[in-house]
Amino acid sequence: MAYTISADGLRKRYGDVQAVDGVSFDVEEGEFFGILGPNGAGKTTALEIIEGLREADEGTVSVLGLPPWPRNSKLLPRIGVQLQASSFFERLTAREQLQTFASLYGVPARRADAMLEAVGLTAKAGERVEKLSGGQAQRLSIACALVHDPELVFLDEPTAALDPQARRNLWDVLREINTEGRTIVLTTHYMDEAESLCDRVAIMDAGRILRMGPPATLVRGLDSPARISVPSGVLPLDDARALPGAGEAADDGVSLVIETRDPSAVVAAMAARNALTGVQIHGATLEDVFLELTGREYRA
């Protein structure tokens, strides 16, 4: 079966910086694909090559079976792009904004209202874009990317700088779009977002893909210990260390945390001691995978 996106050996250099250094991946139809990476990892450049905004120095890319470079007006109506900055026409209302984009694609202007409804902005239709909150502006820019009903949607850090409510709200919108059968490619540096939304993620750093797969598979492959915590005083620290299967243990006066690679044995032993009051078990997350791969040192 033909892939929706097929990228092979993409490279792009800006002066001394090798922004993208041999990136290959395929995205299937209907898939929700995430590209994760710290700032400057080359996510945006890779995405721009695939969208057709930049030409790769090396490598080939095909989108919906077509080459995106040079500007391909057969391909453009079939893809929707939400850019990092909220690129709106100045001083237009939300509805006018959508109507303008609709007509660029030859879509009837009345579709604007349907899109406002879809992203929950009907009440803000007559509001100028400058007056919208961060979350509303992001939802509007997603609506602008979807107004012509594209098969493939690119979202570049759609939830950057949003508060937690607005993020969750936007996730629902994105899931809905994906359920309609569209293929979505998303870049983000929020691990929880990728874990919650994406079928498959590629972790990128320094222009390369370090690991790729479904989030759960990546986490399982990490082989990092689980952490079992109980409130301090439920179990003495020395006893905790002596439990069968227990690794490192520490008590900070609030919680006693035991690291283990065999959580079921530890929990069973704790149950035998009747020490399960307020127990919490944390497994590794995508964030652990990410930090394991990209390192923990701070990079400005």
Partner: peptide, 13 residues
């Protein structure tokens, strides 16, 4: 503001 990029990604000449 990125409107030019956005226009470039639309099929409008």
């Amino acid at each position: 503001k990125g409107i030019l990029r956005r226009l470039r990604l639309s099929p409008a000449p």
